[in-house]
Simulated assay, not measured.
Amino acid sequence: MSVRNRFGSAAAIALMTTVSAVLLSACGPDNADPGATAAPGTSAPGTAAPGGASHSGSPAPGRKEVNGTSVANHLTISTGTRNVAMNGTIVDFGSVVRDLAWSPDGKKVVYVGDSGDLMTANPDGTGRATLAKHPDGEEWSHPTWQHAAKGPSGNVVPNETERYNNIVFTAKKAGVLRLAKVPAKGGTVEDVSPHNSEGGDNSNLPQPPQTGNTWANAGGQQAAIAYANTPTNEVYIYDDYIRPATQDIGKGSQPALSADGGQIVFVRAVNGHDHLFTRSTEHDQKAEKDLTPSATTDFTEPAWSPDGKTIAARTPEGIDTVPADGSAAPTQVSTLLGLPVYRP
């Protein structure tokens, strides 16, 4: 079984089951605003999935369904509807939210709205604004917030913070996938063109594919972006900040970089199911770890916790988490069906 292809169309997320959850606490979407508005609802209890995962996300006796999010764990689940789970509650954004991602400071979200445009908003769903409008005949999906705060020496680089304060996303036109970007403050949409630097030791390196690229995910403090190339089924890391060459990580899809940029998680099909793999992003560190070696279900759309200790992933039954060091089997934390992301 190959990994589910949710790359190319924002509409794919819209097909997710519409779900809501009863509030579990008084906590709101913003830690400083526990009284934020939430849209209550109900959903059917989840069923335990096979494959070594300890699915503990079903309702406890006498309690409502757990949605898996809390102030402490930073987990957010966007369900492809107007409702987003975070901080133990459901936030009604007032319109469809697809492929939600957080700003580096956790104060804003970017997502694909019901019109297919790139939208930004506050964590409580207020302040919605159109960042960029998609052209007719083009579909946008899976935005990520690229940023550069520190140079290789650890110092803040003058003028680089704004230069790399971009939203990178997938654009699909006439069946062709490519990466594009727009300044986070708004502006002109441009193509992202992964490349190997000309001259020096990299002059003879083959250039990475320019089309078929999707599922961008930013991490670290130096504008690094992981992405997948669907025709080759390869995962890459690219930036034009410190890396002279685009790095080929190997076979896989749906990559995500850790907050410090030092680790990457990605999906690869093994024995008929989608597994989660991690490895270092360093060129000389190629050892991989399968976090789900006994999987008999599919683990997709992984995301790193801010502290780098936990990875959340989607399954057909909801959201599971697994220790990033592989020290324990995955555990179901939510029966909500959606895209897991962590708030910084």
Rank of each mutant, 00 (worst) to 15 (best):
A10H: 15
A10M: 11
A10C: 05
V22L: 09
P29N: 13
P29D: 10
D30N: 14
N31G: 15
T47Y: 11
S56F: 06
G57T: 00
A60D: 10
G62W: 11
V71Y: 02
N73G: 10
H74I: 00
L75P: 06
I77G: 02
G80H: 08
N83I: 08
N83Q: 08
V84L: 14
A85P: 05
D92K: 11
V96F: 05
R98I: 04
A101S: 13
G106R: 14
G106M: 08
G113P: 01
A121R: 13
P123N: 13
T126C: 07
G127M: 06
R128T: 05
A129H: 06
K133Y: 00
G137F: 09
E138W: 09
W140G: 03
W145F: 10
A149Q: 01
G151F: 02
S153F: 00
N155P: 00
V156S: 01
P158Y: 08
N159F: 15
T161E: 11
E162L: 14
I167Q: 01
V168I: 12
T170V: 12
K172C: 07
K173Y: 02
A174N: 15
A174Q: 13
R178Q: 12
R178N: 07
L179P: 07
V182G: 03
G187E: 06
S203V: 01
P208M: 02
A216M: 08
A218E: 01
N233M: 10
E234M: 15
Y238F: 15
Y241K: 00
I242Y: 11
R243N: 07
R243A: 01
P244C: 06
G250N: 11
K251L: 12
Q263N: 09
I264W: 07
V267L: 02
V267C: 14
V270Y: 06
R279H: 03
D284P: 03
Q285K: 14
L291D: 01
P293D: 12
S294Y: 04
T296G: 03
T297M: 04
P302L: 13
W304C: 09
S305L: 03
G308I: 00
G308L: 01
A313L: 05
D320A: 13
D320F: 11
P323Y: 12
Q332G: 15
S334H: 07
T335D: 07
L337F: 09
L339S: 10
P340Y: 06
P344T: 10
